[in-house]
Amino acid sequence: MSAFLAVIARDLRLARRQGTDVAMTLAFFVVVVAMFPLGLGPTPELLARIAPAVLWVTSLLAAMLSFDRLFQQDSEDGGLDQLALSGLPLSLLALAKACAHWLTTGLPMLVLAPMLGISLNLAPQSYGVLVATLALGTPVVSLFGVVGAALVVGARRAGVLVALIVLPLLIPILIFAVSAIDAASAGLSVRVHLLFLGAILAAAIPLAPLAAGAALRQALD
């Protein structure tokens, strides 16, 4: 347990020291969201209609940019060997990495998204659901990201590759999250959508670290 927490603490400390890495991901999130009103015109109804999809798709794209932080540097500087020799099973190591990634990427997005929602004229009753979908969905994004990042350790063009691998796997998250926010905007019940998101999260918490652990094992061999 202490090794698990020590890995999270190390990654958080690194993220704090290299603050620009995290800030760049969040800045990308903000900038891309701002491109939509500029491209579509500032019609409030149109923006309100597309706001859930824009926020979610953009948060996924921004997350893709952050995955190469997960293992690529550790694999290049020999740190991955040391992590593997910590005695922590590789699946738990992957889970610790996912936790640190969520704390440095998912959580800040959770805070930023409602503010960006205002700029897109998101319906007032949808903010709570937006945050709820992000709270349930972004941990899954981090978990799948760890799987993808573990798979591409040592690959050429790893940054693009991880997006190509992970994005199709996240389609269910996108569908349920956006339809939940749409339902909230239309004044419908969002319970089923959120339950689906929660179910995917509940399945991903044990399964994704297992897959990532297997991928790391292959990367070390």
Partner: peptide
């Protein structure tokens, strides 16, 4: 597409095959 890209992204063919196998299972 993701699988094919991953399998061919490594200099060591063994490594590509093993990563691809994990990805195919996840998929």
């Amino acid at each position: 597409l993701g699988y094919i890209a991953l399998v061919n992204a490594f200099d060591d063919p063994d490594r590509g095959g093993r990563a691809g196998a994990v990805l195919a299972l996840v998929g």
